[in-house]
Design a protein around this nucleic acid. Structure first.
Lengths: 124, 124
DNA sequence: CTGTATCCTTCAAGATACTG
DNA sequence: CAGTATCTTGAAGGATACAG
């Protein structure tokens, strides 16, 4: 649980970004806040992220106490990731980032991938 | 005004972090949202940031339209940085990050430098 | 399905010296 | 005062192959 948070930060915002920052974590959290997800589901929902990154960020989020990893052994291995209480506590922050992101995406002319592909086994 | 925002992002949150992310910009914005600041004042308020970083981030924030740089020529050169309208629009987001940062700083046991040194010419 | 292990590239950031 | 200019390094991220 130590991770690298045991430093001195210039301000609380810097700390928040240390946890949420980087290229992928907030994207993953944005998905996980919709509900628990398996490894493969996350991979499908964030296709541009390499598996290495996916695993690394999952471990990091777990270490920081934002997500919980539950495995269910069996023929087909399963690993389910859910937000912890602390992860849940980030909701308003993520929402604020989301709202502001939408706003300036328009202003700046940035493109956003796809709002929420939702899950579908077969298109038909 | 182009900068590097003209990409495709996985979600709005990623875009928001592209603008606010990195090690220093939010710290600078946290100061600037208290009011206009000169170059030297910013340097003093964020002493751990090298001058190179300070200048680079200032230029970037300017390019992204979050801050405005106004120079007043004269014997002693002056450069004053203020938030633009877009910069102001980030207030709620920065506040959300701040609040959450305070919360988990406590939980995780992270140290925060100094709340707000405020400006003082002489201590007495 | 759920990951590890490597290798490689790029870039943010740090240190420091210098300028108009 | 308000910056530039270099040089260097570490970490982040990407691609891809392999494994239980």
């Amino acid at each position: 649980m130590a991770s690298s948070l045991e430093r001195t930060f210039n301000c609380p915002v810097e700390l928040a970004l240390e946890v949420l920052g980087g290229k992928w974590k907030v994207v993953m959290l944005a998905r996980l806040k919709e509900g628990p997800l398996r490894y493969a589901e996350l991979r499908r929902l964030v296709p541009r992220m390499s598996e290495k990154m996916l695993t690394q960020r999952l471990r990091e989020l777990e270490e920081q106490g934002l997500i919980l990893r539950v495995t269910r052994p069996g023929a087909a291995k399963q690993a389910v990731y859910t937000l912890t209480q602390r992860g849940e506590s980030a909701r308003p922050t993520l929402q604020a980032l989301y709202d502001w992101g939408v706003r300036i995406a328009d202003e700046v002319g940035a493109r956003i991938e796809s709002p929420t592909p939702a899950k579908r086994r077969k298109t038909a």
